[in-house]
Design a protein around this nucleic acid. Sequence first.
DNA 1: ATCTAAATGTAATGATGTTGCATTTATGTT
DNA 2: AACATAAATGCAACATCATTACATTTAGAT
Lengths: 149, 149
Amino acid sequence: MAQTKNFRFEELLDKHHLKKTGARLRVLSMMYSKNTATSQPDLESVMNDIDRVTLYRILNVFEEKGIIHKVFDLNGTANYAVCHADCGENHHHDEHLHFNCTNCKNVYCLDDLHMPRLNLPDGFKAESFTLYASGLCPKCSKKSQVIAN
Amino acid sequence: MAQTKNFRFEELLDKHHLKKTGARLRVLSMMYSKNTATSQPDLESVMNDIDRVTLYRILNVFEEKGIIHKVFDLNGTANYAVCHADCGENHHHDEHLHFNCTNCKNVYCLDDLHMPRLNLPDGFKAESFTLYASGLCPKCSKKSQVIAN
DNA sequence: ATCTAAATGTAATGATGTTGCATTTATGTT
DNA sequence: AACATAAATGCAACATCATTACATTTAGAT
């Protein structure tokens, strides 16, 4: 199974004309295994043998290629999540809800919740929308109930 | 008129039990005179006689008091805008659209566009919503037309 | 096996966020 | 009007993050 998955990631890199390096495969494998977005500090703490700058560049190139998209959390730090939709080079579709838990700080991409159509005031030409929400995620809202009782 | 305005800002500071200092009045006057959000670098370039840390703390205390609210632009840098709605201490209502122009980088608060109600997946307890859009603002979309012709 | 462009590591720099402490100032009280 | 004091400011310092330049290594084509 691990092989199947790895194979999938290698294909993905091929498709975007990126060399299949260990670092990139590990980053992909980590990001695809989570249902929350990942910040660079997160990556650094897990893969402390890979240089900070390398991670920075991996994230950048993945974003350019449309493999991941960037989303800022409540503190303004960048988090990255895999693009499930059809993102292409410099052409992102992350018009879903980003939910930032105020307790565990995780950022969830809720892909099913799409943007409603909005009428902008005269002159504004929107190219993309993003929706943010903050509050408690399922795990943390369960915990806070337990504590309250 | 300048006096009328200043008087208004002094009242505002009084209301929140903040001392009426020159730096604070100037920050208020600048922020209220613009229809876009202001980043700390913006403030620093205009008021280069005031210390960076002082501006940082002014922005923080204004946000705590609900005088301004924070919004991150496409680069993840904090921008601040005056709260037109009824924001109180640690209690913000910035659930309107934040429009980030990709050309001039300005962030507009479009207060009239409120959030639609959304049904979150089970377990998610949202406390606040924010809506982002990016694209061209009226000024820049006009310019780009001129260039195109 | 070799070659080359791409990827990585290292070093360095600038911007920003944040805290501690000494000094100054706004404002209530005498 | 002078004073006392808590609040506000300025300065120094440090942490983190974003970003670039350059030297070295490596993946993949020949």
